[in-house]
Amino acid sequence: MTKLKVGVYGITGCAGCQLSIIFNEDDLLDLIELVDLKAFPFIKEVNPDEQYDIIFVEGLVADKGDLETIKKLRKNAKVLVALGACAATGCVPAYRNFTLKENYEHLLYRKIKELQDVQPTPVDMHVAVDYYLPGCPPDKRQILAFIKGAVKGAIPKPTDNPVCVECRQNGNVCLLEQGKPCLGPITVGGCNAVCVNGGLECWGCRGPTKDMNLPLMISLLKRKGFDEKFIQDRMRTFVGLKLPMLKEVLHGKNHHA
């Protein structure tokens, strides 16, 4: 059987999501036997520019170079996987879309013109994405399950369960009950509620569920004493571009602020 040819690339990102693949230490030696890990510039010297069965891409499009790279990767990949929150939803770097230019302009590398050219955006706003492994960082077991599924010809169906499902299975007491602005009920699970297990409320890094009840989530947070600005900022931190309806739901249809 020919092995699946796999590439792992990064555009603008912190490399943490690529590390999440490597963090599967116990399985790593078996993994490189299972697939042909042909390109992985983060850890490999030779990375041929050719056709791949699967390409994982980490990071978001934030400059001209990213744009060229992502188009090339799309062309090279039978299956393109958005690896991690930046690639999948834009994550924190895409927050720049929601603030005025004067707030960040002085922080940019002014001398390198091309770094300022592109609005920071997730991969699927530029090319088609076949599969998402969301999260900041993505769950390492989920990455492994995806690769093994691909090898068997049975890619796992992505879940739409909210974080709360695993959170309750873990016996956690709801952080909303403790007055924390937890976004678990509207956020895609699969992370084993790792933040809530450690006492930190969910910030929504894995993106909104298709089934989310956003108006209720917002009114619940308001009832808990959080104001509109706080709710908007929090919900935009990781997935602002995936919540285009947020402003309307938050302020009502006729609000133009």
Partner: peptide, 13 residues
């Protein structure tokens, strides 16, 4: 249902 987040707390507990 309008008050339901579909979080599954009810069935888990």
């Amino acid at each position: 249902a309008d008050q339901c987040l579909s979080c599954g707390a009810c069935t888990a507990l």
